[in-house]
Write a protein that binds this DNA or RNA. Structure first.
Lengths: 216, 216
DNA sequence: CCGACAAGAACGAACGTTCATGCGTAGACG
DNA sequence: CGTCTACGCATGAACGTTCGTTCTTGTCGG
């Protein structure tokens, strides 16, 4: 377990856009505007008029792309959660065989995602409650799927004795809590680089699990 | 450092009310209603009419007690933050001399507060952004004052070699992040008791700091 | 000519706040 | 002691604004 293995994506300009360009010109602009405004003012604090203005289109035209305000939020959260789970599980699969290595890779991928898609993560943290019914269950299911990746890793490490914490069942949740809230204070121009964040939290996670790096 | 030292308050019914009873009958009811609704639906999602109804009074009468919706939120956050800081620093002062003991006591007090005043903590986490000007700076200052307690403890422990983490400057923030978000998932009737939570997170914090319990 | 995209006007509802009014009571005053 | 007054508490109505959504109309390329 080397402590400064490079994070997958070191060039901020090369970070793939969460929204991309689907050919439909305004769709991306609307999603981007909604992402920013939901994060800045919260779901109820950002009006459809605000979003339309920020996207450079008209209020009524929003409804040619998304049937409701809630559906627009759900669309954003689904994209973010799906990409997050994909990046984390991909990092785990390309990591070495050791559970400690895999958990370190998972934490790095997670932290890296939080830094890259900070606004999306902010929304995912605090705006899910404004969804109901199908929209909500879908988003929550994807979020839980991601948490399970970490829970399984921790359980495996505890079973094999690599993690000696007496609370393996709950440690994964604490690790994710620690990493998620990075979105609430991270500044790309601040003292800590993205690489610093990944290094720190990978080490935090292993320490919290009271891991034995030797592997046995 | 005993791992199961009792948390200050074990009887839920004896937890002092955050709001209390100031003689003014409706004031407490209004604050309690606002606390619950702000936590359930967010600041912008809970209307003054909702709060009045939940408090059992009329809409216009709210303004005989609080001059604005934002001031009502600020009042709640000030009370919560002040009580939190008081309980944490009190716990530190009554703990033993060792830095590790003191940090453990601080974490226990913090977690205990989160469990006791869960709704208040939920609001403090996500609704501060809706405050502006004086109201905001006041709340943020009190929140930072509490964070400094932890930062100072960690710095002292790192300087004396009790905490061997290579990132002492940032570990305190991660510990608080971990403990704060308990408010988002804790259920008093769930598998984990308040005592469990305190034990776990005190241990997490020390492990995260890579503490040497022997003290040197 | 049909469907995707666009815009303005309008809808009813809900928002935070203010106003006008009234009741009860504690304190000042002759 | 009696009375006036001022203030705290309470209410329903109303103000102007903004909300999410829909309607109507129109353009334009395949």
């Amino acid at each position: 377990m080397n402590d400064r293995s490079p994070v997958p994506d070191l060039m901020p300009d090369l970070v793939p856009d969460l929204i991309g360009d689907s050919g439909r010109g305004n769709e991306a602009a609307i999603l981007r505007a909604a992402l920013r405004l939901y994060a800045e003012r919260g779901f109820n604090g950002a009006s459809m008029r605000d979003i339309a203005r920020a996207a450079g289109t008209s209020l009524s035209n929003l409804y040619n792309y998304f049937p409701s305000k809630a559906r627009l939020l759900a669309e954003l959260l689904n994209r973010a959660n799906a990409l997050l789970s994909a990046q984390v599980s991909s990092a785990v699969h390309t990591a070495g065989e050791g559970v400690a290595e895999q958990l370190g890779a998972a934490v790095r991928a997670y932290v890296s995602f939080v830094a890259d898609y900070q606004t999306a993560m902010l929304i995912a943290l605090s705006e899910v409650r404004h969804l109901e019914g199908e929209e909500r269950t879908q988003v929550v299911a994807e979020r839980d799927r991601n948490q399970e990746i970490f829970e399984d890793l921790v359980a495996a490490g505890a079973a094999s004795g690599v993690f000696t914490t007496p609370y393996p069942q709950d440690a994964a949740r604490s690790i994710l809590a620690m990493c998620s809230t990075i979105a609430t204070w991270y500044h790309p121009e601040g003292r800590l680089t993205k690489q610093d964040l990944c290094d720190q939290h990978a080490r935090y996670a292993l320490a919290l699990l009271e891991g034995r790096v030797d592997g046995r």
